[in-house]
Design a binder for these strands. Structure first.
Length: 489
RNA sequence: GAGUGUGUAGCUCAGUCGGUAGAGCACCUGACUUUUAAUCAGGUGGCCCUGGGUUCGAAUCCCAGCACGCUCACCA
């Protein structure tokens, strides 16, 4: 990738040397612009065409275009474009010489006076140029920009310099995360940090990355979820905790999956899953608003409307509506298997709950484009969740679907230590039966619960996927600055 | 992991039936104090992803590999 023999690079190094011969450091330590493109456009929005002011300003930014042999230079700062105008008649020799040494991509500073050209472009009539950073490599073509996706992901800096959309998406991601923090902190929920290196895997079903600690002489896992640590903090007496952090899952990559991804996990004392639904909606709506300024957005061709309350539907009712099977009226596993034949694959060992989940995932999930909380999952699929207060067959859990994707997963947290122990045992059995993704026994977590954990609501939200939706990004790689890529050989 | 597509100048892309490697932008030289994808004239720039094979001759056909995209499977 680094190509020292590139002719254009050689030319630029020669120009760099010429700056040094002129006694100019092409990489100075400091430079202070005193305004920005945005500020100038606002302040001089009423300046008429062809009018020159005496107002002297200092701007700085990257050269994106040079026209008319340097007479017009487009300098972009972080807020936008400033056109720099240079007159052969008024500029001293030394300044004109600098223009000849400028290239597209250079970062320069310009001192000059504000004017608007005859054609209506707000400009700085240059008096003095400063080279702030000589760029040695040619940028992608101005019209098409950088489109090669591999280069976009591997050299995100080039993508950002060239494509403003990329910058805007990453900025929005930052705004979304910041709004999440703001919203949670406002409610008195504390931001905490829990181990990423974990000796026991837990809190989710997933294949882990394994690493090794030399001094401790033990293998460790990169976390697949922070859940069990966060709940220990609730046991300890923090009444609300959240963590926005990276999870690692050693599974396939796709347009919706990156090996490392970011979630919010939040646990809140004396709340249940209904409270978590409210919190979920507030977080999504507020972050949509800061990113887009509206609650009605487009994702591709689809319209997504966050202005209404999210739908709240039980999994069973959705299955009944879309497929016609009424699981709540089914009494036994055998009857469930009978009803599902010809609808989904049915295995001998399947339970009532396995089948309801399968029918839901295969026949209902992708239809949930409107924001919807899917509630009351079967107990078998949810080892950390409290049983439903009114129906022992299901748990107090919901998953929030937007655009057919699972965005949030939340429950009334299981707090009964004996129940929890048995559910871990069940997971361990599954693991021993070959299920690599089943939870491990976490005895210390059970011990924590034995000291007593108050009724608590918990929720996880996939930040990457939410960002995809809120930034109209077709791939998870578009919302991750540096997505996982294979090493180049 | 399976299927499929792509890989040619710094960037965006052409390249016909297998017969000397092309364009636009960028860069260099010159013209022009005019612009906004500035224009005009001339020029530089290539491991045609890598390695084999077929052939008198391969960017092109065949085989293998590498990287990336997409679809499917696992998964959030």
């Amino acid at each position: 990738m680094l190509n020292p023999s590139l002719e254009q690079r050689q030319v630029r190094i020669e120009k760099l040397n010429k700056f040094e011969e002129m006694g100019i450091n092409p990489y100075p330590n400091i430079f202070k612009p005193n305004t920005t493109s945005d500020e100038l456009n606002e302040k001089y929005k009423d300046l008429e065409n062809g009018i020159e002011t005496e107002d002297e300003v200092i701007v700085a930014g990257r050269i994106k275009a040079i026209r008319n042999s340097g007479m017009f230079i487009d300098v972009y700062d972080t807020t936008g474009k400033v056109q720099v105008y240079s007159s052969l008649k008024t500029l001293p020799e030394q300044e004109l010489a600098k223009i000849d040494l400028f290239d597209i991509g250079d970062i320069i500073g310009v001192k000059g006076t504000v004017r608007r050209t005859k054609r209506g472009e707000l400009s700085i009539a240059a008096k003095e140029f400063s080279m702030l950073s000589k760029s040695l490599l040619p940028l992608p073509e101005k019209f098409h920009g950088l489109t090669d996706v591999e280069t976009k992901y591997r050299q995100r800096y080039v993508d950002m310099i060239t494509n403003d959309d990329t910058v805007q998406t990453l900025k929005k991601r930052s705004l979304i995360t910041a709004e999440f923090r703001k919203c949670l902190i406002e409610k008195g929920i504390l931001e905490v940090e829990t181990p990423i290196l974990q000796p026991i895997l837990g809190g989710a079903n997933a294949k882990p990355f394994v690493t090794h600690h030399n001094t401790l002489e033990m293998d460790m896992y990169l976390r697949i979820a922070p859940e069990l640590y966060l709940k220990r903090l609730i046991v300890g007496g923090l009444d609300g905790v959240f963590e926005i952090g990276r999870l690692f899952r050693n599974e396939g990559l796709s347009i919706k999956h990156n090996p490392e991804f970011t979630t919010l996990e939040v646990y809140w004392m004396y709340k249940d899953y209904f409270d978590m639904m409210d919190l979920c909606e507030e977080l999504v709506k507020r972050s949509c608003m800061v990113a887009n300024g509206t609650l009605q957005i487009k994702y591709g061709e689809k319209e997504i409307d966050f202005s209404q309350p999210f739908e709240r539907r039980t999994m069973a009712s959705l299955v009944k509506e879309h497929v016609g099977i009424d699981f709540m009226a089914i009494e036994t596993d055998e009857e469930a298997k009978e009803k599902c034949k010809g609808v989904v694959e049915v295995n001998e060992a399947d339970t009532w709950g396995d089948l309801m989940v399968r029918v839901f995932e295969e026949r209902c999930e992708e239809k949930l484009e409107k924001p919807t909380h899917v509630m009351d999952h079967p107990i078998s699929s949810s080892p950390l969740t409290k049983t439903h207060r009114a129906d022992k067959r299901v748990v107090e859990r919901f998953e929030t679907y937007i655009n057919g994707w699972e965005i949030a997963n939340a429950y009334s947290e299981l707090t009964n230590p004996l129940d929890q122990y048995n559910r871990f045992k069940d997971q361990v059995n599954r693991r021993e039966a070959g299920d690599e993704e089943a939870n491990m026994m976490d005895e210390d977590f059970c011990t924590a619960l034995e000291y007593g954990m108050p009724p608590t609501g918990g929720m996880g939200i996939g930040m990457d996927r939410l960002c995809m939706i809120l930034t109209n990004s077709p791939s998870i790689r578009d919302v991750i600055a540096f997505p996982t890529m294979r090493k180049l050989k």
